[in-house]
Simulated assay, not measured.
Amino acid sequence: MTAVAGFAAAGFASAGDGGVAAQAAMDDLGMIIAVTAGLGLLVAILGVAVMWWLRTRSIGVMLAIVMVVAIAATLAGVVAITLKMIIDGPVRDIVLSVVAVGGLVGLGVAYVLARRVVGESRRLVAAVRDLPFTAPRGLPAELQTIANTLEEAYARERALEGARRELVAWVSHDLRTPLAGMRAMAEALEDGVVADPHTVARYHAQIKLEVERLSAMVDDLFELSRIHAGALRLSPSKIGLADLVADTLAGAEPLARAKGVRLSAEAAEAVPVTADAGALSRALGNLVVNAIRHTPSDQTVVLRAAVDAGMACLSVTDCCGGIPEEDLPRVFDVAFRGETARTPTLDGGAGLGLAIAQGIVEAHDGVIGVVNDGPGCRFEIRLPLVT
């Protein structure tokens, strides 16, 4: 019995030593993790500080810093393990050698990647400097996205520049023609070439008409410049489209009567929107005036106000004979009047009405479009309904 008791006591003592050893190993592991995490955090902070200091340098430098930070953090962990005597002798040398080789491999890969990124960036810069700009192909995804965006922006800028040149050319023509006529009539009145009261009165009336046309043209140019500059100021309020249609018809009636065009309205009741009544009335009025100018006598221009697909819809349908399909995307471009309408009629404008209408509608978070419909075309304005 004494021998059995001694054996049991020895067994319990051995189990207690194993528990103490396991606890010591856990303590060492916790300390290693804490030291490694602390050193890694310190290295990361230093790396971020260096990257911030060199933020304007090459992308290659940034990639090299990233690799150095990763290797330094790994070495910090290995050093922590070595200091705790967990690995020693040949094993330690092997671990350090593996880490060193891995770091050199990482730096080599980072160098190759940095050279490619820098080279592709320089290729993109060279393409930007070489106008007309065409996006190079085969770039990394992010650089390719930037290149494609630049190409689209350059194409838009060229289109806008072309529109500006057309606008200057056409407005210059539209200004020169009435000014030349007014100068001739004023000189005739001044020199006494025209003396009979009837002709003098006709000249005065014609000069007044041309001045009104020029004033309207200048107003359109000013309004368009505000739209393009983002300086259009709206005073939105809740309005009904039926009232807007009625007011627009009343304002366009004299022009329609003089042209021999009939006006018709189909307005649904209670179509509320939040809009600047004056600005939206001008946009709709521009569409109606455009429709009247291009509709033959004894034909009808129809205005409609209704709810369609959850949107408030204003439409103007004319009998202009339709717009060529290739011209439809350009209808709202500045100064676009179509190949057959570049010389304005007596009641024509500078081709700014539709561009102004588009700017006003888009300022209301709406959309405007045009489609061919029957004997003519249909312009549509879609606005959010009041909820």
Rank of each mutant, 00 (worst) to 15 (best):
A3E: 10
A5F: 07
A10V: 01
A10D: 08
G18H: 12
A21E: 15
A22F: 11
A22Y: 15
A24L: 06
M31D: 14
A34E: 02
A34V: 07
G47I: 12
A49E: 06
A49G: 04
M51C: 01
T56Y: 15
I59S: 03
G60M: 06
M67A: 02
V78C: 13
A80S: 07
I81V: 03
G89H: 05
P90R: 08
R92G: 14
D93R: 05
D93M: 14
L96T: 11
V98E: 08
L104H: 08
A110C: 00
A110Y: 02
S121N: 01
R122Y: 09
L124K: 05
P132G: 10
T134Y: 02
P136W: 03
G138M: 00
P140V: 09
P140K: 10
A147T: 12
L150T: 11
E151H: 15
A153C: 09
Y154C: 11
G162H: 04
G162L: 13
A163R: 12
R164M: 13
R165E: 06
V168A: 13
A169S: 08
V171F: 06
T177H: 08
P178N: 00
A184M: 13
M185R: 11
M185C: 07
L189D: 06
A195P: 03
H198T: 05
Y203I: 07
Q206A: 04
M217E: 15
V218E: 01
D219M: 10
S225N: 05
S225E: 09
G230S: 07
P236D: 01
D243A: 07
E253H: 04
L255Q: 10
K259T: 07
G260Q: 15
A265W: 04
E266Q: 02
P272G: 15
T274S: 15
S281Q: 04
L287A: 07
V288C: 09
V289M: 11
H294I: 13
T295P: 00
P296S: 00
V302N: 12
V302F: 02
G310N: 08
L314K: 03
I323Q: 00
P324R: 10
V334K: 02
G338H: 00
T340E: 08
A341P: 08
P344K: 06
L346C: 09
G348I: 01
G349H: 08
L352N: 05
I356L: 00
A357T: 08
H364D: 14
V367D: 12
L383G: 00
